[in-house]
Design a binder for these strands. Structure first.
Lengths: 351, 351
DNA sequence: TTGAAAGCGCTAACAG
DNA sequence: CTGTTAGCGCTTTCAA
């Protein structure tokens, strides 16, 4: 009979109203928990809702409230990647435990408010347009953006379109957009001071990519702290935040500085790679070489030996991002804000 | 002035129609690419769209088309986890590269069709209700479910509500629901045959949790193949698909079977843990002990030594899931289907 | 080929 | 405290 495609329509407010012998408006009030409804009628309505199996239609509600109750969680880069590169990107992204923590924090904030995250990758110019389009259509009320490159144009795009958005980590340029960040330099200083206090004299660093703000800042902090400790010229190797990259950087550093006794890696994954290489070269960690990582991600405790690392409270930061975004959504005129979290040293076995 | 909360409303179809001097219906036709519109008028309308900066409102469209163009990507378990456990769950989930590959495959199918995935965790009974509610509200047109436990009630719930859904891996019970799966037993056989052909005589297995279908099937396949090869009583240790779990299982196995010379681990993460323990115990991989993993996830190639493993084409499987789901959404009456993929042995250094 | 008109299901004034 | 009414912006018959 009814072969019209589409979802089974289910009962509407009208049906419930009829069943309860009241008006649509009253049912709506009860469903939305608005005060000023006679308790008795409330009960009647609730029963009618149960009896009919009513569920409000979100599209209809959104149409009038102008809220989707959905936010976009977008991971964006700068490139103009091919399909294959995008796949690789996604895999790499999730191989790093960092993103899982972001998702976890975001969901923990959103869920109790019955909001939901739509996952989007924005590695190409088309994809970025899709993100902006998605927001402009009202499919999402705002965006949480995790940017992986300084040159990422997306933050500027959403700012220009004055769409509610919050970034994870400070934007590279002077973009008027709220963000949540970590005091990366302080974190690096924590690591260096620990290494120094431990008695390390030849400390090197495996830095993250310099075009990623966090990579840049951690290196900066490392150098500052080292200079302050009397070591203005510490060796460094730049890597890409991956395990393999960290391993290769460690090998280079080891070749150039056979007498090194301390390593500060800009994330745990690279620290793990470093540990492997050190062991392969017969150096004991931490006896011969002390290693400090960054992030306190899941690999930190899984590593052998467990990593001493600088903790980044990613889940809390993600929750804060979501909170800020909600404020921007509710008060469109709210001023740009930034929240910077403090890192913390977590001492385990590697240093 | 206008302090009404809500998204900036932007131009509507009406505005474009006025600008182009045609009716709303015509603009709608052009925007949606419906035939039977005079090419000249089409052009006029397109210009008006550009001039006004029009973007269709998705809620309004959904209200009439009854399509959200959004699907739920849900990861569900069986438990009734606390908040903290859920966080841990999320972190563990993303620590395993598997999920990233699923997301990647799903997005690669969805994006060209301008559909988007909403990420949901369903570890508690409340969360499961939220998922069902979300679908019933029409916020999503269907669900892609990655279930982590055999006792997960969600598949039955969505089937009962006859909501379009597709599972990753076969449901534990006789639930009428479509799924995509891998021939796990064949995969295990591939691994065993390779180990046997290599000359291994004392092969053990680190199995996944028995209450997870894939864990169960891989163990089953291992035993079958071993029996067929003349080794009906191979030692096994059950673990939890994590690196640490794999390591502990390996240590037990090694203590009980000091003469073992081959290991089949039910996933790469556990294989990696096994390799670490083996090396710590002075066994060389693969010279003394050959190790085969499962999945061909990113850790397989990052591992030292690189892992010989059974490849599971997760991205392709995820794409197929999305494709099946779309079919179910379009033809609500479509019969339940299952697609089973074949595994493939990838030989690297570990065996 | 185009336009007029009728809703989709809901919320939110505004009366009563 | 409750009902009536007027849309939200869009698609889609149905006539012209």
């Amino acid at each position: 009979m009814n072969s019209k495609a589409g979802a089974s329509s289910g009962p509407t407010l009208e049906d419930v109203a009829r069943a309860a012998g009241v008006s649509r408006a009253t049912v709506s009030r009860v469903v939305n928990g608005v005060r000023n409804v006679d308790p008795e009628i409330q009960e009647t309505v609730r029963q009618a809702v149960a009896a009919t199996g009513y569920t409000p239609n979100r599209a209809a509600r959104s149409l009038v409230t102008r809220r989707a109750e959905v936010i976009a969680l977008v991971v964006s880069g700068a490139g103009d990647a091919s399909e294959a590169e995008q796949d690789a990107f996604a895999s790499r992204l999730f191989a790093d435990p960092f993103f899982g923590r972001v998702v976890s924090g975001v969901i923990s904030y959103l869920r109790p408010r019955s909001m939901h995250p739509v996952l989007m990758f924005a590695e190409t110019s088309d994809a970025r347009d899709q993100v902006v389009g998605f927001l402009r259509q009202g499919s999402a009320d705002g965006a949480l953006i995790v940017s992986t490159h300084a040159q990422d144009p997306l933050p500027a795009m959403v700012a220009e379109a004055s769409l509610p958005a919050v970034l994870f980590s400070r934007p590279a340029g002077p973009v008027p957009i709220s963000y949540v960040d970590l005091a990366h330099k302080d974190g690096a200083r924590l690591a260096v001071d620990h290494l120094l206090a431990r008695g390390c004299r030849r400390i090197v660093t495996i830095a993250g990519p310099c075009d990623v703000p966090s990579g840049h800042d951690r290196l900066d902090g490392f150098r500052d702290a080292m200079a302050r400790g009397g070591h203005p010229y510490a060796p460094m190797a730049e890597a890409d935040f991956t395990l393999g990259g960290g391993a290769r950087a460690m090998a280079r550093l080891l070749a150039d500085n056979p007498d090194l006794d301390g390593v500060f890696a800009a994330n745990d994954l690279m620290a793990q790679g470093a540990c492997q290489v050190l062991r392969d070269h017969g150096r004991r960690v931490p006896e011969d070489v002390a290693v400090v990582g960054f992030d306190d991600s899941s690999v930190a405790s899984a590593c052998t030996p467990p990593l001493t690392t600088v903790r980044q409270p990613v889940e809390d930061m993600a929750r804060e991002m979501a909170r800020l975004l909600q404020q921007h959504i509710e008060h469109q005129d709210r001023a740009v804000t930034s929240v910077v979290f403090d890192p913390e040293l977590v001492v385990r076995a590697s240093a």
